[in-house]
Design a protein around this nucleic acid. Structure first.
Length: 480
RNA sequence: GUCCCCAUCGUCUAACGGUUAGGACACCGCCCUUUCACGGCGGUAAUGGGAGUUCGAUUCUCCCUGAGGACGCCA
C-alpha cells in the first residue's frame, strides 16, 4: 500500500506552493488507493504557532485535501506532532551514538558562524571539518563533565558518492566530499529536520516522499541518515517549484501566496486545485478543466515536469470563471452571499426573506463572473437606489441627447400601461419606438444607462423585470 | 563562491528520432448580439547557441549561455 505525507511546519499560513505539494501527494495517494498522511513538523519551537497550524488545517479542508491519517483522525493526535515524538528521535540518536555513527560536537554556534563568515569572505564553501568527531572518548567525557553544550552529528563518509533515485529527475549524484557531518540534535536536544523527517517517514511507513525541488539538495544528507540507521530508503519525487513573475521561487513579494486569501478573493477551491494541478504536471490529453475526481483518475508522477512553472493569475481567473459557470443557481448563490453581505448589498435577514430575488440577480451575472467577489460591483443597481451614471454611461446619455427625452416618455408610458413583464415590455417597446422612429440601439442604450447607470450588464428587459415598476419609474423620473 | 537541478510561443504545456511543432491562457481580428460577457471561427507567437550521433533531431551526447534551488543548532 502506498503511503505519502504532507509535512508542513506550522510557522505561517499554508502557502500556494505548499498546497500544490499537498495536492500532488493527495492525488498520488488517491490515484493509487494509498493513504495521505498529515504530519506537523513543529520542531522549530521559536516559530511554530497554533494559529498557523489551524490555518493549515482550514486551508487544506477548504481545498478538499482531507487527510487519511493525522491530527483529528486518530485516537492519539500526538503521533503526528514531532514535538510529541521526542523520545523516538532520542532513541535513534542514542543508537547512532552507541554505534559510533554519530558523535557529540562541542563547537559552538558562534565559532562556526565565524568560520562560515570567513569562508564567505574567502569565497569558498563552508564545510564543518568534523574535528569533534576525532575526539577520544575521554576528551568527549571531559567536555561533557565540564558542562559544555553539544550537538549530535552523524558522521558522513567522505569517500564515494551518493545517488538519489528520483521519480521525476532520474539519478542525481553527489560527491560525498561536498557533504559535512549532519547535525541531528541541537544543544537543547531538539532534533533537526533532516533527522526527524527520516525517522518519521520510516516510522510512518511512507513509501513515496513527494516534496518541492528545494529539498533535493537535502536528500543526499537524508540518505546518509537512512543508511546509518539501516532504514529502507523510500521513493523520492522532487516536484518543480512554483515561480513568481521574475522566475524566482514564489513568495509574498510576488503577490498573494496564502491559500485562504484566494478564498477571500473569491476563488473556488476546485478552480485553485484545477489550476495548481496543471502547474508542473499535465495529463495525456489537451483538456484544461478538471474536477478533483478527474485529476485523481489521471494523475501520474511520471508526467510531472522538471522545470519550474510561473504562477499566472490570468489563467487561474479563467479557470475560476469556468468553474463558476459550471455551478447551478443555488450553489452559486450560496457562494456569492458572503461577498454580498460583506459589501452591504444584502443582510443576513435577506438570505431567507429575499433568497429568490438574490438568486435571480446572481444568475443574471453568472457568465460575467471570474471571481466571486465581483458579484457586488456587478449587482449594485439591483440593490441600491441612489447610484448615478458612471462616465461611460454619461457619454451614452450625452450622445443620445436628441432622442433621450422621447425614449423615456415612451418607456414610462409602456411600463405604466403594461407593467414589467420582460417579454411583453420588449414587444411593446420595440413597436412603440419604431412608430416614433427611434432605432433599437438608441433606445436600448439610453434605457440601459438610465436604469443601471452603466453601459454593461444583463439583458435590458431582464433588468426592467428585475427592477419592477416602482424602481423603473423612479429611475425614469430621475433623468426626465 | 561551491554543489545540485532546469531550458518548446509572453505564460502553462503536448511531442517519448520522421508532425505544416499541437492545445490552453493572454493578445488581435471576425461572427453572434440591445451593452458587457459567454460562445463560435480565425490570426500573431516557440524548440537559447554551438558541436556531435543519425538517412533524419524539439527529442540522444557533450560544451557554452541563461535561469533557478540548496549551502542554518529553519523546515
Amino acid at each position: 500500500m502506498d503511503r505519502v505525507r504532507f509535512a508542513p511546519s506550522p510557522t505561517g499560513y499554508l502557502h500556494i506552493g505548499g498546497a500544490r505539494t499537498a495536492l500532488f501527494n493527495y492525488l498520488y495517494a488517491k490515484h493509487n488507493g494509498g493513504k495521505f498522511i498529515l504530519r506537523i513538523e513543529d520542531t522549530d519551537k521559536e516559530r511554530s504557532t497554533i494559529e498557523s497550524e489551524l490555518e493549515i488545517f482550514e486551508s487544506m479542508k477548504w481545498l478538499g485535501l482531507d487527510w487519511d491519517e493525522g491530527p483529528g483522525k486518530s485516537a492519539d493526535d500526538s503521533l503526528y506532532y514531532q514535538t510529541r515524538r521526542l523520545p523516538i528521535y532520542h532513541k535513534y540518536a542514542e543508537k547512532l551514538l552507541n554505534e559510533n555513527k554519530a558523535y557529540k560536537c562541542f563547537c559552538t554556534k558562534e565559532e562556526l558562524d565565524l568560520e562560515r563568515k570567513k569562508a564567505e569572505t574567502e569565497k569558498r564553501a563552508f564545510k564543518y571539518d568534523g574535528r569533534c568527531g576525532l575526539l577520544t572518548p575521554e576528551q568527549t567525557k571531559q567536555n561533557e563533565e565540564a558542562g559544555k553544550p553539544f550537538v549530535v552529528r552523524v558522521r558522513v563518509e567522505q569517500a564515494g558518492e551518493t545517488i538519489v533515485t528520483d521519480i521525476v529527475r532520474g539519478e542525481v549524484k553527489v560527491q560525498n566530499s561536498t557533504l559535512d557531518d549532519i547535525i541531528i540534535l541541537r544543544t537543547d536536544k531538539m532534533p533537526i529536520y533532516n533527522f526527524v523527517v527520516v525517522v518519521d517517514d520510516v516510522e510512518m511507513g511512507i513509501t513515496h516522499v513527494i516534496r518541492g525541488e528545494d529539498h533535493l539538495s537535502n536528500t543526499p544528507k537524508q540518505i546518509h541518515i537512512y543508511k546509518a540507521l539501516n532504514f529502507p530508503i523510500p521513493q523520492f519525487a522532487h516536484i518543480p517549484l512554483i515561480l513568481g513573475a521574475d522566475k524566482s521561487k514564489l513568495s509574498k513579494r510576488h503577490g498573494e501566496t496564502a491559500v485562504l486569501r484566494y478564498r477571500e478573493l473569491g476563488y473556488l477551491p476546485e478552480a485553485l486545485i484545477n489550476y495548481l494541478a496543471l502547474l508542473g504536471w499535465s495529463p495525456d490529453n489537451e483538456d484544461t478543466i478538471f474536477s478533483m475526481e478527474q485529476l485523481v483518475s489521471k494523475f501520474e508522477l511520471s508526467r510531472v515536469h522538471k522545470s519550474g512553472a510561473m504562477f499566472d493569475n490570468k489563467k487561474l481567473m479563467y479557470i475560476n470563471g469556468v468553474h463558476i459557470r459550471n455551478k447551478n443557481a443555488d450553489e452559486l448563490t450560496k457562494m456569492c452571499l458572503p461577498y454580498m453581505i460583506k459589501s452591504g448589498l444584502v443582510t443576513e435577514n435577506d438570505i431567507n426573506g429575499r433568497y429568490d430575488f438574490i438568486k435571480h440577480t446572481v444568475v443574471l451575472q453568472q457568465e460575467k463572473l471570474q471571481i466571486l467577489s465581483e458579484i457586488s460591483d456587478l449587482s449594485i443597481y439591483f440593490y441600491k437606489n441612489d447610484y448615478d451614471m458612471n462616465d461611460e454611461a454619461k457619454k451614452v446619455w450625452e450622445k443620445n441627447a436628441a432622442e433621450r427625452v422621447k425614449v423615456l416618455e415612451i418607456l414610462e408610458k409602456v411600463i405604466s400601461e403594461i407593467g414589467v413583464d420582460k417579454t411583453k415590455v420588449e414587444e411593446r417597446l420595440k413597436a412603440d419606438m419604431e412608430a416614433a422612429g427611434i432605432k433599437p440601439k438608441v433606445f436600448m442604450h439610453v434605457i440601459r444607462v438610465v436604469l443601471s447607470g452603466t453601459t454593461m450588464g444583463p439583458g435590458l428587459f431582464d433588468i426592467v423585470e428585475t427592477f419592477g415598476k416602482e424602481k423603473c419609474m423612479a429611475r425614469i423620473k430621475k433623468y426626465s
